[in-house]
């Protein structure tokens, strides 16, 4: 029994590239450690990243490239550990444990129209499903990316968004909260795309699949955005079991042992972080 693997020991990857996406978020391209070479990673899963001496944090995977053997992590500078991670440079090592979590229900999404609704930093984990669509053309019937940022200086993945617009069966709609001088695009919250009266409303919801039969919505964003999205979807009576979201939570071990992410009968690190809106409703009100 003691030749069991010890799941608490991180492996190490090297930082190959870094890129400042916006003032808060920095991307890190990290080499996949040898011990993790053949691990399957589902979009929506997360890894526990260690900065030894400081601590460990859960970070969703943005992209996994098995040929190049790289992971892409996009980390927001919001706390003590993340601010130290932002100071790391190319060549330095970072501890990695994972992949953990359930990921998006890929098998159930085959052939469906996927609407990705991203609020600000929510685009980070959703990028993994967009990447899946790009590397598995035709897997989804259609991919619609709705991205809302506070302002133009909060945009992330600007180059990638340009590329996504060019892909077949893919539409991208972008909006910012308040009007800006040099901005000719949409203004308003990302939920406006889900409203029928909006000029640039969601194509899939209101043209391509108005019965919602073949459509699934994936939402990630700050808690206040979830409230607004649910309200908008309730108005058009979109079925709750076809909406998936990613729940952020305080985590320590990432493997369902320490109890910190336990909410109701679920552990966010085991049964999540991807939950359907229907499942969310059964979680205790504290969440």
């Amino acid at each position: 029994m003691s030749n069991q693997p010890n799941h608490y020991l991180p492996s190490f990857g090297k930082i190959l590239e870094t890129k400042q996406e916006n003032s808060l978020i920095k991307s890190f391209l990290v080499s996949v450690p040898d011990t993790m070479q053949n691990m399957q990673v589902l979009p929506g899963q997360f890894f526990q990243l260690s900065l030894l001496g400081y601590g460990e944090i859960p970070i969703s995977l943005s992209e996994y490239n098995p040929e190049k053997k790289t992971y892409l992590f996009c980390i927001a500078n919001t706390g003590a550990i993340t601010s130290k991670i932002h100071q790391l440079s190319v060549g330095e090592e970072i501890g990695i444990r994972g992949p953990y979590g359930n990921g998006f229900p890929i098998a159930a999404l085959k052939g469906k129209n996927i609407i990705v609704v991203a609020g600000g930093i929510g685009l980070v984990p959703l990028r993994s499903i967009i990447h899946y669509s790009l590397t598995n053309p035709g897997y989804f019937a259609h991919l619609e990316i709705l991205f809302g940022a506070k302002s133009t200086s909060d945009f992330i993945y600007k180059e990638e968004i340009k590329q996504w617009r060019l892909k077949p069966d893919t539409t991208v709609k972008v909006t910012i909260d308040k009007a800006e001088k040099a901005w000719n695009g949409n203004v308003g919250f990302v939920t406006s795309f889900l409203q029928e009266n909006c000029a640039d409303h969601s194509e899939i919801l209101f043209s391509l699949d108005p019965s919602f039969e073949n459509t699934v919505i994936l939402v990630v964003g700050p808690p206040v955005m979830y409230k607004n999205v649910f309200r908008a979807l309730e108005k058009i009576e979109f079925p709750d079991k076809k909406v998936y979201l990613s729940l952020e939570n305080h985590m320590k071990c990432g493997i369902g042992k320490c109890g910190h992410c336990n909410c109701g009968e679920k552990y966010v690190c085991l049964d999540g972080p991807i939950f359907s809106w229907l499942e969310m409703k059964s979680l205790p009100k504290e969440y």
């Binding site: 042992k257 320490c258 910190h260």
Partner: peptide
């Protein structure tokens, strides 16, 4: 069974 996990830095390189 719940527990907390913490890191301790003993020097620039060890901990």
């Amino acid at each position: 069974t719940c527990f907390d996990v913490r890191d301790v830095m003993e020097s620039k390189s060890d901990g």
